[in-house]
Design a binder for these strands. Structure first.
Length: 263
DNA sequence: ATGGCGCTTCGCAAGCGA
């Protein structure tokens, strides 16, 4: 096994059903050529995971799923060693985390709970889950120089990540406790890699299916690639690829891609 | 103000997402 994964792109994409979006993943990756893709909301049990088709496409895969809800997968051009397929000490059956590594680079793929509404039981669950995630990421940072956390984090960290901050103020995805949880992760030594670079204004990664939200660019930036300091130092660019959001029958999220230089 | 779209399921209606 090489010391680490070298120059490549890493991507995160909530596909809202891998069954429906498999051709999108294969088509997009053939063009974008990422070395690793973190998929969320695969929405299928492990026995239904399309491993054969992905292998034919040249992918290795780590995955954990369940029927109908949640489910995450790490696709990679080089095989990854499984680090965890659940959040330690948070075993509740919701398949929301998978982590793998190769050499010194550890890649964590998470689908953070939505939270439903501020104050709801699911909102409390989200905050508790994020607290447990911070603990897990802290242990990973102790063991690895290079850590990437790719996710549908279900938090818009700043008002510039929201198309209409006044309308969204205080609601789930932007509420202060959620944003504080985001900063708790950053305080561990992670960087929101998207903001390492100049970005277009009104950059979003999710748009509601309704009301022509994508056409009107009424979106949120809720999909993130966080990097440890050592990894951020070899990050060359981060961008949101809006193209697949405009394809027929798209996911409501679109890929976020980070380009890494040589190790 | 409401709901609007698209996904799922011991399906044909309802829960959930964001």
């Amino acid at each position: 096994m090489p010391a680490t994964l070298g120059a490549m792109k890493i991507a995160t994409w909530n596909v809202n059903s891998l069954r429906v979006r498999l051709e999108h993943v294969l088509g997009w990756s053939a063009e974008a050529e990422p070395g690793v893709i973190a998929l969320q909301e695969t929405k299928m049990p492990d026995e239904a995971f399309p491993l054969g088709t992905l292998r034919e496409g040249g992918w290795h895969a780590l995955y954990t799923g369940q029927p109908a809800y949640n489910g995450v997968a790490l696709l990679s051009r080089e095989p990854l060693e499984l680090v965890a397929n659940a959040l330690p000490d948070f075993e509740d059956g919701q398949r929301r985390l998978i982590a793998g590594r190769r050499g010194g680079l550890c890649i964590v793929n998470v689908y953070v709970p939505n939270g439903q509404a501020v104050g709801a039981d699911k909102y409390q669950y989200k905050l508790a889950w994020l607290e447990a995630l911070a603990g897990f990421v802290a242990t990973l940072l102790e063991e690895h120089e290079e850590v990437a956390v790719l996710w549908d984090y279900n938090i818009a960290p700043d008002d510039r990540d929201v198309y209409d901050p006044a309308a969204w103020e205080g609601s789930v995805l932007v509420s202060p406790p959620e944003r504080e949880a985001f900063h708790t992760l950053l305080d561990l030594g992670l960087t929101d890699s998207f903001r390492l670079f100049d970005q277009p204004e009104q950059s979003y990664s999710w748009w509601d299916y309704r009301q022509g939200a994508f056409r009107r660019n009424r979106g949120l930036r809720i999909d993130h690639i966080l990097m440890s300091g050592a990894l951020a130092r070899r990050c060359r660019s981060v961008s949101i690829d809006r193209e697949p959001r405009g394809w027929p029958r798209p996911s409501d999220h679109t890929p976020v891609v980070a380009e890494l230089g040589p190790a």
